[in-house]
Design a protein around this nucleic acid. Sequence first.
RNA 1: GAGCCGCUAGCUCAGUCGGUAGAGCAUCUGCCUUUUAAGCAGGUGGCCCCGGGUUCGAGUCCCGGGCGGCUCACCA
Length: 526
Amino acid sequence: MPATKGVFGLAFKKSAGESLVEDRSVEFQQRLAKLGQLRESGVDPYPNDFKPSTTAAAVTEKYGPLTPEELEARKGESVSIAGRIMAKRDFGKASFVQIQDRSGRIQAYAKKDILGEAAYNTFKLCDMGDIIGFEGHLFRTKTGELTIEATSLRLLAKGLHPLPEKWHGLSDVEARYRQRYLDLMVNPEVKDVFVKRSRIIKFIRDFLTGRDFMEVETPMLQSIPGGAAAKPFKTYHNALQMELYMRIAPELYLKRLIVAGLERVFEINRNFRNEGISTRHNPEFTMLEFYLAYATFDDLMDLTEEMISSLIRELTGSMKITYQGAEIDFTPRWTRISVRDAILKYSDAAEDIFEDKDKAVLFSKKLGLKIPEGLSHGKILTEIFEEVAEPKFIQPTFVTHYPLDVSPLSRKNAKDPSIVDRFELLVAGREIANAFSELNDPIDQRERFENQLKEKAAGDAEAHEMDEDFVRALEYGMPPTAGEGIGIDRLVMLLTDSPSIRDVILFPQLKKAVSQSSPSAAGDNV
RNA sequence: GAGCCGCUAGCUCAGUCGGUAGAGCAUCUGCCUUUUAAGCAGGUGGCCCCGGGUUCGAGUCCCGGGCGGCUCACCA
C-alpha cells in the first residue's frame, strides 16, 4: 500500500539517513516498513538471547519414527529450533513455515489460538528469509509430515531482501559466486560440496597426524618466492620498507623444518600464483604438502595410494567414483609408469629422442608442438609427454622419473642422472599430486639454483630464484627425505564431480563488480 | 590474450519482421485454522548491463565498452 510505504519510508529516513532507502526494490521498502511496525509495537527485530535446544535433523531423527499416537503421548516434550523461513503457507489464522537450520529443514505450524493475538501479529510481519526461533511439540499433519506445533515464537533477525525463487533457486552463475551466502542458503547441493570438502581435509589431517606427522604453518609472506615455478604476487611491508611476495609454495620452509629435525611435517594452506584464471586455476588455492624423513618417493607412492583410497572409501563407501561421466576406480594397486615408457607407449616416438635433443625437437614438431628456441631437452620431453600421454591417464596412475631440468629440487636417479626420483599422480588426465625424493646434497642444490638463474637470464620468468639460506640449511645436513604436494581443490573437484574449481572454492576470485549503489562508479572505471 | 554464448521485475525466464515491455514465483490487499511449488480474487513492481550510431521509431539492427560462462592459449 503506497500510504504505508510512504509513512514508514519517511520514518526510517529520519533515523538512519537517506541513502539506505533510495534505489531499493519495492519489496525492500515493504520489509523496511514491517521493521518499523515491529519496533513501534515494542518488538526488537534483532534480539540475541534465544538459544535453540536442538536442530531440525536431530528432531527428525528422534521423532520421525513415532506414530501420531506416540507423538500425542509425548506432547509434554518441548523442543526449540532456530532458523530461516524458507517457505510460508498462510491460512489467515494459521500458517505452515519451513525452517532451515545448519542441519536441514523442518516444518512448523503457527496457530493464532495457541500463540495468542500479539505473538501471531508479530508472526504475520515475518517474511520468507527472516530468521525466527520457536518452541513447541511434535505432531503429524493430515498429510503425514512431521511438524512442530509452535507454542511460542520470536523473530530473531529480520531479512530485508527477498529470497531467490523457491523452485529454481539461484542459478545465475555470477550471482552465485558473488553472493555465495545466497547460493549456500537456497541451493542445498552447493552446501553438500563444501561439507564434503571439510570432511576431506579433516580426513587427511587425521590420516597424517595418525602417522606421527606434525602440522605446521610457514610464511605466506616471503622475500624469495620459492619451491615452485610460478609468477608471484608482489606486496610491500611499510615498516620494514621491503618488498615481499605471497608464497607460491611452502616447500623450502618445510624442508628447513626437516633439517631442524622435525622429521615428519605437513601443512594445509593457501598458495598464491599470479597467473591465468580458468576452470582449473584460482589465484589462491589450497595445497597439502608433507615431508617424511628417511623415506623415498617409492614410499610416498604407497602412502598416497593408502591415503586417497581410504579417503574415498570413507567418503563414498566404495572405491569407485564418477567424474564428469567417467568411472574411476581407486582400488590399489595403481599403475606406475615412467615418463619415458609413457611416451613410447602412447606415441610412435623413437628411443633416440631421450638421448638426442635435436631428435626430440624434430619429434615435437611432428606432433605440431610450438617449441620456443632454447627450450631444454628435458622440457621438450615433458611437453611431448603432456601432449601424447597425460590425457590418457583417466584411472589413477603414478607417472615417474621426470627429466632433471624440470625438477630443480628433486634427487637425481641413481642409475640415470638425466632423470629424477619423482612422480606425479594423474587422475582423469589431471595432476593430483606431485612428489619426489628430496635433493639433500647442498652442492648439487646450489648448482641447480645457478642453472635456474641462467634460465631466468635467458628469459624464463618462472625459473627458480636462488635461496642462499635454504642452501645453507642443507649444508647443515638434511636427512634423506621424500616430500609431496597435493592440490586440495583439484582433489575436491574430483570427489564432488565438480567441473570447475570455482565450484569448490567458497569465494572464487572475480573481477571487481560494477557498483550498483554508487552511480559514480561507472565513471571510475573509464 | 583470442573465439563463441549470455546480461530484460527481487528470482527463473519469454519477447515474432524494428512499432505502447510480458509470464511464473516472490511481494501487496481481501478471503481462508492440517498446507506441501497450498488455493481463490484483485493490485504494485522495469536505467531491458553501460555509451554511441542507424531509424519517424531500438529490448530487438550496427560500433565501442563492462561483467560473467565455456573453449583455446597461458599455467611443468
